[in-house]
Nucleic acid binder design. Structure first.
Length: 121
DNA sequence: TAGGTGACGGACC
DNA sequence: CGGTCCGCCACCT
């Protein structure tokens, strides 16, 4: 049933994204690696594109490794909504869609104990 | 069936 | 810093 296999991938992506704590960020490659699909970051993007909105899944917490929101006309404004949602969670986003990814990066498993060295400006 | 595309990532200039 | 090119893999025409 290859047909179900594809749908299962989407569900797996959404479930992994749902694990992202509020106020933190994750990359497409990070989600892909989390579900055991290393190198399939692009497919994670497809899965989120197929996500019906509105959704309880915090899809807005997923950005690319460059630390910026993917701005493309294909999303018909969902990219702009993502920026608004991130701002509502206290994450500063530049007009260009760029944000301090290194500072809000989600670390699976390291929920306790701030092991991240404080990046002093 | 073949070719182009993209909500990606990394290397290169 | 930013712009460009290549590799990757599922989706669409």
């Amino acid at each position: 049933m290859t047909h179900e296999a594809g749908a299962g991938f989407d569900q797996r992506v959404w479930q992994a994204v749902a694990l992202i704590p509020g106020g933190q960020l994750a990359t497409y490659g990070q989600i892909a690696e989390l579900i055991g699909a290393w190198g399939c970051a692009r497919q994670v993007g497809w899965a989120l594109r197929r996500l019906p909105l509105p959704s309880a899944v915090p899809w807005h917490r997923v950005v690319n490794a460059r630390g910026c929101i993917a701005m493309t006309p294909s999303r018909e404004g969902s990219d702009w909504i993502q920026r608004e949602l991130l701002l509502a969670e206290g994450i500063p986003v530049d007009p260009a869609g760029r944000l301090p990814l290194a500072r809000y990066r989600w670390r699976p498993g390291a929920s306790c104990g701030v092991a991240i060295a404080d990046v002093a400006p």
